[in-house]
Structure formats: structure tokens, C-alpha cells
């Protein structure tokens, strides 16, 4: 197989592995023994934790892409940042919604203004704002520069969200992953959780490949549109000519 053919077939294989991984994660999540205190609703753990893990990863990649863009001004880094932010917003939304579905049978309410829940919602809307900001600026370099600043500022929320359950008294349980002490979870449940995290991470990589290709094509299309029709905005607007003696003043 040539290098080019290998590069073309890699995403296809990655897609297949991602789909199989997500299916396997579903199987393990439903077949693992029920948790002792919460029972069946605790199976939401295998969705909720991988989703918010992916959101963290995605927004850290957005931070890295934003910093790299500002340092190099290469559009490739902007593609990385926007692709990761979009996927991060999807996974944050999923984490919030499946967290609400988990909360109802355990806490008795879908939502409470708890520090973790509120900060996660704020993070979701900040990155939604990042995507909205990008839609208001047509010029790619200007858009990339301004979005990069928000991509860097927004990343400060990640530790805030993650450690909120340790810094403030909250209803939400302490973190399952990335905690300072040992994880308090039994082997079979932990295995199902890691399979979920691994499957969602492979899915993230597969989605990133496609989303970055879309960003590249959109940039090329924009460049060709400008080359064909010229600058879109501002061409039709010319400063009025002021003739001496006819200004009416």
C-alpha cells in the first residue's frame, strides 16, 4: 500500500474502530453488575464520566490549537481549535443531559444550582459563544485570531469545573477520574468505565479527522470565492463625494 493510499484508508479504519468501540462500551455498560447503593441508575456513570472527560480533552486541545495559532499564524492550528471546540460542546451537552437524567432518580430533581452543575453549564455556554463568535467574522485570519483569545480564556474553566466538587460543598459526588487519592470503585465497574473512556476517546479522534477536513475545505472554498468575486463586504460602499458649495450647509 502506498503512503497516500495508507493515509486515505486510515480514517476509514479509525471510523470502524470507533463504532465498534462505542458499541462495546454500550455492551459493557449494560452487562456490568449493578452498583450496590444506587443500583441500575449508576450505569449512567459509564456515559457521564466519558462524556465530560472528552469535553475536558476537547477544550484542552482547543487551548493548545489557539496558543499554537497565535504563535505561528498557521490556519492548521485554527482548524484544530475549532474542530475540537465543536466536538467538546457536543460532549458537554451530552454530559449535562445524561447527568440530569441520572440526577432525577437519585437526587429527586433534574437540576439544582450546585457548583459543579452551574460551572459546567457556564462552560457549555462559553464554548457555544466561541462557536457563535466565529460565525460573526467572515475573514479567516481575523476570525482565527479573535477566537484563539476566547479559546485560551475559556480554558480557565476546566480546572474550575473539575475541582469545584472539592473546593465547594456540593451535592455532586467527588471526581471519579483524575482525583488526588485512589479511585473508590470496584474492578468490574472500573473496567467498564475505562472501556467507555477509551471508546469515546477513539470516537473523538475519528470525529476530529472529519471535522478538520471540513474546516480545511471551507477555508479553500472561501479563498476561491474571494478570488472569483472579490471582497464581498464593503465593495459597494463608497465614501460620498463632497463638492464645494453644494453641501447644503
Amino acid at each position: 500500500m502506498t503512503d497516500a493510499a495508507s493515509r486515505r484508508s486510515f480514517p476509514r479504519w479509525l471510523d470502524i474502530v470507533a463504532v465498534l468501540g462505542v458499541a462495546a462500551a454500550l455492551g459493557f455498560a449494560l452487562l456490568t453488575p449493578a452498583e450496590r447503593t444506587q443500583g441500575t441508575p449508576a450505569r449512567m456513570l459509564y456515559l457521564h464520566v466519558p462524556s465530560i472527560w472528552l469535553a475536558y480533552v476537547a477544550f484542552v486541545v482547543t487551548l493548545a490549537g489557539s496558543v499554537a495559532y497565535l504563535a505561528t499564524r498557521r490556519m492548521h492550528w485554527d482548524h484544530l481549535a475549532v474542530s475540537s471546540a465543536e466536538i467538546g460542546v457536543v460532549f458537554t451537552g451530552i454530559a449535562i443531559v445524561d447527568g440530569m437524567i441520572w440526577a432525577k432518580p437519585i437526587w429527586g430533581v433534574y437540576w439544582t444550582w450546585d457548583a459543579r452543575l452551574t460551572l459546567t453549564a457556564v462552560m457549555f455556554f462559553v464554548y457555544l459563544g466561541y462557536l457563535a463568535l466565529r460565525r460573526t467574522i467572515p475573514d479567516p485570519p481575523a476570525r482565527a485570531g479573535r477566537a484563539a483569545i476566547l479559546g485560551i480564556v475559556g480554558a480557565f474553566q476546566i480546572p474550575l469545573v473539575h475541582f469545584s466538587v472539592m473546593w465547594w460543598r456540593t451535592l455532586h459526588q467527588p471526581p471519579t477520574l483524575l482525583r488526588p487519592d485512589d479511585m473508590q470503585i470496584d474492578g468490574p465497574l472500573l473496567a467498564a468505565l475505562w472501556i467507555g473512556v477509551a471508546a469515546f476517546t477513539v470516537l473523538y479522534v475519528a470525529l476530529m479527522r472529519h471535522r478538520m477536513e471540513l474546516a480545511r475545505i471551507e477555508l479553500v472554498s472561501y479563498g476561491e470565492a474571494i478570488a472569483t468575486v472579490g471582497p464581498v463586504a464593503g465593495d459597494a460602499v463608497a465614501a460620498p463625494e463632497v463638492t464645494a458649495g453644494r453641501s447644503g450647509l
Binding site: 462505542v22 454500550l26 455498560a29 449494560l30 441500575t40 441508575p41 450505569r43 449512567m44 456515559l47 462524556s51 466536538i87 457536543v90 451537552g93 451530552i94 443531559v97 445524561d98 437524567i101 441520572w102 432525577k104 432518580p105 470516537l203 470525529l207
Partner: peptide, 19 residues
Amino acid sequence: MKWVILGYTVTYGALAGYV
């Protein structure tokens, strides 16, 4: 069990929708 079915349907549905 209904909450788990709802949660998994919503999550996998959202992922399928995004894909």
C-alpha cells in the same frame, strides 16, 4: 431501568445526530 434506557437513547441519539 427506564432512566438508563432514556439516558443511553438520548446520548447515542445525540452522537448519531452529530455524526
